[in-house]
Write a protein that binds this DNA or RNA. Structure first.
Length: 410
RNA sequence: GGAGGGGUACCAAAGUGGCCAAAUGGGGCGGACUGUAAAUCCGUUGCGGAAUGCUUCGUAGGUUCGAAUCCUACCCCCUCCA
């Protein structure tokens, strides 16, 4: 279908495309997106944009925000966003990128996680422009005949095209039937919401395309898949995820967020900039060149980024303090000012047990080892005596390694 | 339903009667060097106030002075056949 647009409308289409394309990894199929935008501009009808999130983990991290920011941009362009909370799908567990079956969550866990999600999502999305929906509302009422109908639209061979299924099948690892339903359910979300554009990470490609298949099956126009690159976590290798423990949560304490950002590998620095920073693209490019040319210490570029993100998520004041804290503690080697405080009895206690009790070690054996390795410190002094009986004084600082501190209160 | 292969620590993978709390690699933790980066090197990686102690090699029993290793039953995974 061709739309005759005025020059002003053509310009608007172009403006939107520039925004939408920024930072994306892939748009499938790109030409259809252009047509949809043209249609939207011509008719004044906003596109229906969908992002699904499974409340499998309770906290949103920077990895999630990449795609959330893209949703935000669509909102800013006047389109309509549906945030689908997968309170039904979450109970199945998306097998994407998992080497094995994911455990199924209870309804209570999912509900609890969803609540936290919504609150955190609003740090990125505009609450006024966000429509939050729960997929159990339409998935739960489906009866077995409906489910069979969904299942009959896809062949096993097609399902096995998905990379993780292929891999598991090849490696003789189990694939459960219910896992096949995950893509179908996600696709059905799009049918139900009559989605025009679905967002997701590149790892979601199969699921996003399944939405197209199913929409066609239901006689609807097919959605466009807009995929964002995956953000690697602190280890610099694996995608940021809670289960891998390499994530930066947007709800974290300012010092932690700042510190974690400072510790990302240099190789990731500009990817983080590209996907998370709101700076002008040209600005980032200039910095990249300065670092490459050796005119700028990567550390300083990293600090700029850390400052920007802490400011965005936790406020300017928090950011200023975090910078200050970082300088003192890590550059000057001082003790942090506000560390976790714990109240302990004033009687002598075995140092190993104290370390364990305060959560600085997982077991007495581990605490004992830590001390033997010379990573235990009391008020900055190395403690090497494993049998030390120590009488706590108010204000003493117990430390394990470079980063874990506890201030003792008697 | 039939035949065969397999289940070892966070992961991968050795070990097939004592020398095994279990090689090796990865990961984690800690240390050195730095910029809380990378690379590299070193230590450590079940519990235990530590003992010739306790628990751990899918689960439960059994044989044995002694079992991850042998036997029995069960559970689970995979392959081929139906």
């Amino acid at each position: 279908m061709e739309w005759q647009l005025t020059p002003a409308q053509e310009a608007e289409v172009e403006r939107q495309l520039v925004w939408i394309r920024r930072g994306v990894a892939e748009i499938v199929p790109e030409q259809e997106l252009v047509e949809k935008i043209r249609m939207s501009v011509a008719t004044g009808k906003p596109l229906r944009v969908k992002l699904g999130m499974d409340p499998t983990a309770a906290d949103i991290h920077l990895g999630h925000t990449v795609v959330l920011h893209k949703v935000r941009q669509f909102q800013e362009l006047g389109h309509r966003a549906h945030l689908v909370i997968g309170n039904f799908t979450g109970r199945i567990g998306d097998p994407t990128d998992k080497s094995e079956t994911r455990k199924q969550l209870s309804a209570e866990e999912v509900a609890e996680n969803a609540k936290t999600y919504v609150r955190q999502v609003y740090k990125v999305l505009d609450p006024a422009k966000t429509e939050i929906v729960y997929n159990a509302d339409w998935l739960a009422p489906l009866d077995f005949a409906d489910v069979i109908r969904l299942a009959s639209t896809v062949t096993v061979a097609r399902m096995l095209e998905r990379e993780d299924f292929t891999k598991r099948f090849r490696d003789n690892r189990p694939i459960h039937i219910h896992e096949f339903f995950y893509p179908l359910m996600q696709a059905y979300d799009s049918v139900h919401l009559e989605t025009d554009v679905e967002l997701g990470g590149t790892d979601q490609k199969f699921n996003l395309l399944m939405g197209r298949t199913l929409q066609r099956e239901f006689g609807q126009p097919m959605q466009i898949a807009v995929m964002m690159p995956l953000l690697e976590g602190l280890d610099g290798v694996h995608k940021m995820s809670k289960s891998l423990g390499n994530y930066i949560g947007i709800d974290e304490a300012p010092n932690d967020m700042f510190g974690k950002l400072m510790s990302i590998p240099d190789s990731l620095l500009f990817k983080y900039y590209d996907l998370l920073s709101l700076r002008e693209a040209a600005d980032i490019e200039r910095m990249r060149q300065a670092v490459d040319a050796g005119q700028m210490n990567p550390r300083d570029a990293k600090m700029e980024l850390a400052k920007e993100l802490v400011t965005r998520f936790l406020g300017e004041e928090a950011a200023v303090e975090a910078v200050d804290h970082w300088h003192k503690v890590f550059q000057a080697g001082a003790l942090p000012e506000d560390m976790e405080e714990v109240t302990v009895p004033g009687e002598p206690i075995w140092i190993v047990k104290l370390l364990t009790d305060l959560g600085l070690a997982n077991s007495n054996s581990e605490a004992r080892r830590a001390i033997a390795e010379g990573s235990g410190r009391l008020n900055g002094e190395k403690v090497l005596d494993v049998d030390l009986q120590y009488e706590p004084h108010d204000g003493d600082v117990l430390q394990r390694g470079k980063r874990q501190f506890r201030r003792l209160r008697v």
